[in-house]
Design a binder for these strands. Structure first.
Length: 196
DNA sequence: GACAAGATTTGCT
DNA sequence: GCAAATCTTGTCG
């Protein structure tokens, strides 16, 4: 994994393959500035996708929608689905390979009230799902392609706490390549969308 | 140009 | 546990 919190705080492993990035993102923080407020959350669950994956948006090549997944690692790929939900991913390397790590669940660290107000629901139910956390953090298509090194949405590397262990399982909500073990989560964390 | 499916969430039975 | 809500994207004709 990356070194223990580099000076800039920005992860140095994002140019690696999707699975390594997905695992490395666990424990990392996202700082979101919106409406004059600052919200900080900690990533507790992710999933890996890339061109060789039948379940990935990039499996059948480049399209207007997935173009961002082929851009520089460290950018945000946001997509709209089911006619009402947004989900966000961190673009992974190597650059131009159409890979990304879906952020499936986060744990509030700061500004919980702001998240709950936007979601209209208190507690872990406010951020324990890909579309839920996007709504809670006010992320939509306007953030597609955003550079995560800049405000108002910044990604910072953080180590897992002592005793925290990474668990791997098959992914959730997909029908193709459903048997591939590419979902990563912090074992036992109460904010994950579903236990391991 | 038309149609089916979708990296989900929520509410009701 | 199951189905509805809701609409964009990709694929096929």
């Amino acid at each position: 994994m990356g070194s223990a919190t580099s000076s800039s705080g920005f992860p140095d492993f994002l140019d690696l393959a999707a699975d390594q990035v997905a695992e490395g993102l666990l424990g990392c923080e996202i700082e979101r500035k919106l409406d004059g407020e600052t919200v900080v959350v900690r990533i507790v669950e992710t999933e890996a996708y890339d061109e060789m994956d039948e379940a990935s948006h990039t499996f059948r090549g480049r399209t207007p929608r997935n173009e961002v997944m082929f851009s520089e690692p460290g950018h945000l790929y946001v997509y709209f689905t089911y006619g009402m939900h947004y989900c966000c991913n961190v673009v992974c390397g190597p650059a131009g390979h159409g890979a990304a790590a879906l952020i499936r669940a986060v744990e509030p660290v700061e500004g919980v009230e702001s998240i709950e107000r936007r979601r209209g629901i208190p507690g872990k139910a406010a951020t324990n799902g890909p579309a839920k956390l996007c709504e809670g953090l006010g992320i939509d298509l306007e953030m597609n392609g955003h550079d995560l090194r800049r405000e108002p949405l910044v990604l910072r590397e953080r180590q897992l706490s002592d005793g925290e262990i990474v668990a791997r399982t098959t992914r959730i909500g997909i029908t193709r390549a459903a048997d591939r073990v590419r979902r990563y989560l912090i074992a036992g964390n109460p904010y994950v969308s579903r236990p391991a």
